[in-house]
């Protein structure tokens, strides 16, 4: 770099690696990058716990192969959402909690547990477990995710296009998921036709919005 023509860096001195312009430009636009980063950790905590809990929910949809596959789609896409945003947390100078219990405890959405008690042997008591009960848990989990990512879209709109882009991609898929589970629950519980308006993904976990540019191949 020429001494006569130093790079313009705003509040960050040339060569200073203790700050990130990628974070400071967000602050300059009125959003606290630390607050945003913590909210992102909460949000991907929910994506991660949902990925875990959907594994159990999917397995208990015994004999309902179409429901299982749709739940698998949502499960893998929620994992993709976690993968998509993890690098953003680090870009904003954060990190994942070292203890996974902390990560789960701070997740912004409730645990999506199988809606049945455990029996005396520590196993799921499935004697009264209904498919519609599982579908309702899935639906409410998706609704929480919609609210969370809408909030992050609100926080970042006009101030942080990188996070906004991720959040709106994820929001698109969460809204798909809600529509799927409304359709299934309506049919299963109420015997009503309430179309999602969608057809199947190409493959489970396609995540057509959150991975369609493949800018994060770990997703």
């Amino acid at each position: 770099m020429s001494d006569e023509k130093a790079h313009g860096s705003g509040a960050v001195e040339p060569g200073d690696t203790s700050k990130r312009v990628g974070a400071e430009v967000i602050r300059e636009r009125g959003v606290d990058p630390e607050e945003l980063r913590e909210k992102l950790i909460d949000a991907i905590g929910a994506e991660f716990t949902t990925y875990y809990y959907y594994t159990n929910l999917r397995m208990h949809l015994a004999g309902e192969e179409d429901y299982k596959e749709i739940t698998e789609d949502a499960r893998l896409e929620d994992r993709a959402h976690f993968e998509l945003v993890v690098p953003r947390v680090y870009e904003l100078e954060g990190s994942l909690p070292n203890d996974i219990r902390d990560f789960a405890d701070r997740a912004s959405c409730p645990d999506a547990e199988v809606p049945t008690p455990m029996d005396d042997g520590g196993n799921f008591d499935t004697s009264d477990l209904e498919v519609e009960d599982i579908l309702e848990v899935l639906l409410e989990a998706e609704r929480c995710a919609i609210r969370t990512w809408s909030e992050i879209c609100d926080m970042t709109r006009g101030a942080d296009p990188r996070t906004y882009d991720m959040a709106q991609r994820i929001l698109n898929e969460e809204i798909d998921h809600e529509a799927w589970f409304i359709e299934l629950l309506s049919k299963e519980r109420d015997d009503e036709i309430n179309p999602a308006g969608h057809f199947a993904r190409g493959e489970p976990g396609d995540a057509p919005y959150s991975t369609n540019n493949r800018f994060n191949d770990s997703a």
Binding site: D42, S108, C109, P110, E140, R143, C144, R147, T148, E151
Partner: peptide
């Protein structure tokens, strides 16, 4: 302000 709207996140 609100986030989860399920009495969980405490926002």
């Amino acid at each position: 302000p609100a986030d989860c709207q399920q009495g969980w996140c405490t926002t």
